[in-house]
């Protein structure tokens, strides 16, 4: 670790800019992926008008959102109404800070972790921040002064609270086994050892299901169930504010995919490579690790979309039943089993 302040600031700024833009590009292209994949699953073609295979569609969409009139209905709570979209995007981006993208990189002879803030309590930070995003949605529903929006907001808070518990408990097993909360350490352990999805299958299952619920994705998109709530909490939103909800949702998807990759799929690990191999490859190892990590993220993002076009939406009581009566006991059982397994 260097003592040079300029070096620290420089590398950190570079990481922030790199990772944030990475996520935003992913968030921008996810709707395109979503539309393409759904089209393929339905024997259609999907977006194909703007650019080759519709690849410029996100740019067209963004331009449209930017140039649309930013209308604020007369009957809303203005401050919260304007604040809410930002409050859904910011937590998603904040979680990025603790996600390790690749093995440490060598810059000017110094080893730099490929994570913005390598916190000791990384996983706790994730839970702390991710539960904040519910405020954005709840505020949006409340500020819209509209029954559908409010119902969407209320559903969202209930759903988030329920699944937050399972989400937290599902990874307890991991750090019980790893005996650390730092995400880089968890990845390093997996690189040399076995991916956590094999050691913690139940935890992985609960985490993945809860991740779907946390990001309001089908089959748990009850806050914006269009058949019941028009568009849920963002009924009253348009132009850039709506785009921010949109971007927030996809950024959250990216973040949770990254978490799944880090916690259960070995992070930047490539099968049959060890920490020593990565170190020996030098900065090429970083590139390989980064690609490996992003591949896993992309795969999980695809899984997100795949599930969306396969499984229909839950009823609200089914949602609660699943969260409290199935996933929570499962997660607890997982903790107990892990504890017994790791008895010294």
């Amino acid at each position: 670790m260097s003592d040079n302040l300029l070096f620290i600031i420089g590398t950190n700024l570079a990481k922030i800019i790199l990772f944030t833009h990475l996520v935003l590009i992913f968030a921008a292209y996810m709707p395109w992926v979503e539309r393409k994949v759904s089209a393929w699953m339905q024997d259609r073609v999907g977006p194909n008008r703007v650019g080759y295979a519709g690849l410029l569609q996100p740019i067209a969409d963004a331009l449209k959102f930017i140039f649309k009139e930013d209308a604020i209905p007369g009957h809303v709570e203005k401050v919260l109404f304007v604040l809410a979209p930002a409050m859904t995007v910011i937590p998603a981006l904040l979680i990025l800070a603790v996600i390790p993208f690749a093995p440490p990189v060598k810059v000017l002879g110094e080893s730099v972790q490929m994570v913005i803030a390598d916190l000791d309590t990384g996983i706790l930070f994730v839970f702390a921040i991710s539960s904040l995003s519910v405020y954005g949605i709840t505020f949006a529903g409340w500020a819209s002064n509209n029954k559908y929006s409010l119902l969407g907001g209320v559903r969202s808070s209930a759903q988030m609270i329920s699944y937050e518990v399972c989400l937290g408990l599902s990874v307890v097993g991991i750090f019980m086994a790893a005996q650390t909360l730092r995400l880089t350490d968890i990845v390093t352990l997996q690189v040399d050892g076995v991916w956590n999805i094999f050691t913690q299958p139940i935890g992985a299952l609960v985490f993945i299901v809860a991740a779907f619920a946390e990001t309001n994705r089908l089959p748990f998109d009850l806050p914006e169930a269009e058949t019941e709530l028009v568009a849920g909490y963002h009924t009253e939103y348009g132009s850039m504010k709506f785009a921010m909800f949109f971007a927030g949702e996809y950024a959250a998807m990216f973040v949770f995919s990254a978490l799944v990759a880090v916690l259960f799929l070995g992070g930047w690990d490539v099968p049959f490579m060890s920490n020593a191999t990565f170190a020996a490859l030098g900065n090429w190892g970083v590139v390989i690790g980064m690609l490996s990590f992003l591949t896993k993220v992309c795969a999980f993002l695809f899984f997100y979309v795949w599930v969306r076009w396969t499984i229909p939406r839950f009823r609200f009581d089914q949602l609660m039943h699943l969260g409290w009566k199935v996933l929570l006991p499962l997660a607890l059982v997982n903790v107990v089993i892990t504890g017994l397994w790791n008895l010294p």
Partner: peptide
């Protein structure tokens, strides 16, 4: 269900441009 939708991705398109 996932298998079904995945297989469907490789079916020819039936829509008209």
């Amino acid at each position: 269900g996932l298998k079904r939708t995945f297989r469907q991705m490789f079916q020819p398109d039936i829509t008209l441009q």
